[in-house]
Amino acid sequence: MKIDEPVTKETIECLGVLAGLPLPAPRRDKLVPMASALIAAANELNRKMAEGRRRGVSPITRFPER
């Protein structure tokens, strides 16, 4: 598997194993197109948020903050 390859059934199977989530073949098929789009978008957001100018940014996990 290469870093720029699209998400495949094998990728989904691997992620399912890591999560301890059994995913029969029809479920893996279903997840491939969705994961391809959403993980690519999340990776793009990762890239932006990892930029040096953002190193001082911490996550908000608790509201409220005024």
Binding site: L15, L38, A42, N46, V57, S58, P59
Partner: peptide
Amino acid sequence: RTLLEMGEMYLATHYIQAQRYRSVLR
């Protein structure tokens, strides 16, 4: 069911970067 399965496909870094994005947006 599909969306819940999808939620288990993300990595921790995806989730944390999304939470950091909230700080930037706010």
